[in-house]
Amino acid sequence: MYILHKYPKIILFSFIVFFLFPALSMAIQLTPEQVNIGTTFNGGTITVSGEISQDEDAVIQIKGTDTEAHFKQTGKVGGVLWMTVAHFSLSGAPSAYFVYLPETISSWRDNKDKRWAQLDLDYDTLQSDIVIEPEQNDSAVVFSDFLKLKADHELYQMVENGVHYKTGTNGQKIFEADIHIPADIPRETYTVNVLKIKDGIITGQETAELNVQLQGFPLFISNMAYNKSLLYGIISVLIAIGAGFFMGMVFKDKGGAH
């Protein structure tokens, strides 16, 4: 009651926004709300859904944090042998980058429509933020190989016809996308952007967070490895020796090794 007296205008505005203009309140739903990595995790699926106006399209963009990674580049030496010719670090690129497109925008991309370029969603928009140290002469080739490497691990995904629509309430439509989460996904917090597109222009954006985290046994192992590393190393060795001895005993009893 205190809030009603203190902030009556805010309450009224919220009421108008949420009940009279639902199109403005494009809440994103993530199902499940976070990715829990347990012992048998081998990738998964997250469903991103929400409501938009009938005349709009929804594009789902998921970005990981910028991380620095170290790479080696193979090249031809002496015109005969393929071997490592350079070592460098690459930073400024998101650890993962997923873009899920509805049918209309997929056709823009396929037909190289200028409206697709205007949206700035393709991989090449990432190139300007990337820093390679030490600087490489063939940075365009490095970037292209980098994309290939990320795509091989399913960490960079550009999925056409990945967003589907259903009839919603109050003249709205429901968008839905099943996002494939690869087994190799780094554990961190991802930004999920749902972009509303109308006539080739981004007219609105809603953002949510997606946590990818360890749980259970993998979490226990990870905590040990990073926080009690010496003890972890010693225990790993002792268990390995124990397993070796155990097998030795088992085979001795059965006369296997004799």
Binding site: I221, A225, L230, Y232, G233, S236, A240, A243, G244, M247
Partner: peptide, 29 residues
């Protein structure tokens, strides 16, 4: 193993354990 665990945190015990189960039996044969 101890040096890599301590300095680089690169020993994956789950992977090692799976390999171990196979290799200890294999070594006996």
């Amino acid at each position: 193993t101890i040096m890599q665990s301590y300095t680089n945190h690169t020993v994956d015990f789950v992977l090692a354990l799976l390999l171990l189960l196979g290799s200890t039996v294999g070594a006996q044969f």
